[in-house]
Computed example of a mutant assay.
Amino acid sequence: MIEATSKRELNKVRRRAMIVEVATRWFLENGYAATSMSAIADEIGGSKATLWSHFASKDELFAAVVDELIGRFSEEISEFLINQTFSITNLKNFLQRFLDRMMDDPSARLFRLVLGEGERFPEIQDLYWERGPATMHEHVSDFYGTAFEPDEARRLARVTIAAITGFRAQLLIAPPDLMQSEAKLFVESLVSHLHFPACEKAQRPSDAS
């Protein structure tokens, strides 16, 4: 009986994951308004009641898609920062990876989608903020905190994230061929203009190899 229950629960989890995967493609390719629960149900097959048993509304399914995408992004970036201590080299590597991940197709489409639908669905903006920028601020603060006092670490994190997310918004409307070259130049420029308080562990940009 326990084994049968476990198998049903596992199938339920797999079914939900498949629904979110299909819905992700629909929302990112077609936007919120042009995506319907019926279309998603038709693609996954089976009874439409099955879809509604997992998600009571399109809003709820949309929230699950946003949560899944942001969760993947945050996990990948967070893994890069875990056990890393501050150095100019590590900072540059992180910023380049952070920007590359923000500009990949799913992340860029999600950003546009949240901006486009955020006014209509403020809960999506809240979710995006909590799982995205707010969480990332904590991780970057911890990274800077390996070399600087907590207040300085938070200041550096706030400036760093604001700068790179602002640059991402600029790149989204720039010609595609400018992305790679401009991104690398931006990272170099940002690091060279950041003010790092005196600290034994901190290298100045000019000292980096």
Rank of each mutant, 00 (worst) to 15 (best):
M1L: 12
E3P: 03
A4S: 11
T5L: 15
R8H: 04
L10D: 09
N11R: 14
V13A: 14
V13E: 14
R14D: 05
R16V: 00
M18V: 15
E21D: 11
E21N: 07
V22E: 12
A23S: 06
N30S: 12
N30G: 05
N30E: 11
S36V: 05
A41T: 02
G46M: 05
G46P: 04
S53M: 13
F55M: 09
A56P: 11
D59W: 03
D59N: 12
E60I: 10
A63Y: 03
A63G: 08
E68Y: 05
E68S: 10
L69H: 01
L69G: 02
R72D: 01
R72S: 00
S74P: 02
E75R: 14
E76D: 10
S78Y: 04
S78L: 05
E79H: 06
F80L: 13
I82W: 08
I82M: 07
I82Q: 10
I82T: 11
Q84W: 06
T85Q: 11
S87Y: 01
I88K: 01
I88P: 00
T89R: 01
N90R: 14
N90F: 07
L91H: 11
N93R: 15
N93G: 08
R97F: 15
L99Q: 09
L99I: 14
D100V: 09
D100H: 08
R101A: 09
R101H: 08
M102S: 10
M103Q: 11
D104P: 00
P106F: 07
R112H: 11
L113Y: 03
V114S: 05
L115R: 13
Q125P: 02
L127S: 06
Y128S: 14
W129S: 12
H137N: 09
H137W: 04
E138R: 10
H139T: 09
V140E: 02
V140S: 02
S141M: 08
D142R: 12
F143R: 00
F143A: 00
Y144I: 06
F148T: 04
F148R: 04
E149W: 07
E149P: 04
E149Q: 13
A153P: 08
R158Q: 09
T160C: 04
I161N: 10
A162T: 12
I164G: 00
I164D: 06
G166E: 02
F167Y: 14
F167S: 01
L172R: 13
I173H: 10
I173Y: 08
I173N: 08
P175T: 03
P175R: 03
P175W: 02
P176L: 13
D177Y: 12
Q180T: 13
S181I: 15
E182D: 12
K184S: 13
L185V: 14
F186E: 02
V187F: 01
E188F: 03
S189H: 10
F196L: 08
A202R: 00
A208K: 00
